[in-house]
Each structure stands twice: as structure tokens, then as C-alpha cells.
Simulated assay, not measured.
Amino acid sequence: MGRFKLTKAVKLLLLILISATFVFISSYWGSVVIALPPPEDTPEEILRTQIIIEARSPIDGKFLTAAEYAQLQAQLQKAPPPKLDPKIREQIFLLRLRKSLLQFFPFLNF
């Protein structure tokens, strides 16, 4: 009877040891891969030192040179885009108000 308990204890200890080793090794392999950035990723230190020489237009999203971008910004500051009609502004405000009220009171169907 004593020998049977001893073999059970040894088997249990061996099973625990193998399981712990497997968990440790599998967690170590995953952490090594997760910790590294992708190889094609440019480091932030290099990106900070680069000078941006092209930009996108805030109007249509086309690529512009630095001079064209500065000229467009100056034009936009001198003549801002036209304002919306007050009636349209009021309609937009009411639609936004309706949307927010429906979030709090979904049973209202107006």
C-alpha cells in the first residue's frame, strides 16, 4: 500500500513539473515576439528629425508643396470659406438636438 502511494506521488510531481515547464516555455516564446516592433516600422527618433516638405490640402486632400501650402493657408486666412445660411444652421442644430434627445428618451418618436 505504501509503494502505491509513493508511485502516485512521484507521478503527480512529474506531471506538475512537466506542466510548469511547458507553461514557462510557452509564455517565454510569446513575450519575446510581442516585445519587438515590426522591422518595417521607422523609429520615432528618426521621424522627429525628418523635415516635412509636402502637405495635403485641407480643402480637397491633394498633395501640395510647402510653398503651395503656405500660400493656401494665407488665402484661407484672408477670405474664410462662406458661412452657412442661418436657416440651414438652425435645421442642423435641431437635428442634432433631436438625435441626442432620442438617445436619452428612445420611446419618444417625433
Results as ranks from 00 to 15, higher is better:
A55E: 02
I51M: 05
T42D: 08
I52E: 03
P58T: 05
T49C: 01
I46E: 11
A35M: 05
P37A: 08
I25G: 06
E40H: 12
I34V: 04
R48P: 01
S26I: 05
W29K: 13
S27D: 10
I52T: 03
E40Y: 04
A55Q: 02
I52W: 00
R48Y: 11
V32L: 12
W29A: 11
P58K: 06
P58H: 03
I34R: 01
R48F: 12
I34E: 11
I52H: 00
E40L: 12
V32S: 06
I52L: 12
Y28K: 15
S57F: 01
I59L: 14
A55S: 06
P43A: 07
Q50S: 02
S31H: 05
Q50P: 01
D41I: 14
P43V: 14
L36H: 10
P38F: 03
W29H: 09
P39Q: 07
G30H: 11
G30T: 05
L36F: 09
V33K: 06
I59V: 12
A55P: 00
G30E: 11
V33D: 10
I46A: 09
I25Y: 13
I34P: 00
S57R: 00
P58Q: 05
P58A: 11
E44L: 14
I25F: 13
S57M: 01
E54Y: 13
L36V: 10
L36K: 09
F24N: 10
I59F: 12
Q50W: 13
T42V: 15
P38M: 12
P43E: 06
I59H: 03
P39H: 13
I59C: 07
Y28L: 14
P37C: 03
S31W: 14
E45K: 10
I59E: 04
T42C: 08
I25N: 09
I53S: 07
T42S: 09
P39E: 03
D41S: 06
S26M: 15
S31C: 13
E40K: 04
A55T: 03
I34T: 02
F24V: 09
I52K: 05
I59S: 07
Y28C: 10
V23R: 03
T49L: 12
T49P: 00
E40D: 07
P43H: 11
E45M: 05
E44K: 09
P38Q: 10
A35I: 01
T42M: 08
L36T: 02
A35Y: 14
E44C: 03
S27L: 10
L36A: 08
P37D: 05
V33F: 03
I34C: 01
I51R: 15
W29N: 09
L47N: 07
I53C: 02
I53N: 11
E54G: 04
I51W: 03
Q50G: 01
V32Q: 08
G30Q: 12
D60E: 03
V33C: 02
A35N: 11
D41C: 07
I46K: 10
L47A: 04
Q50C: 06
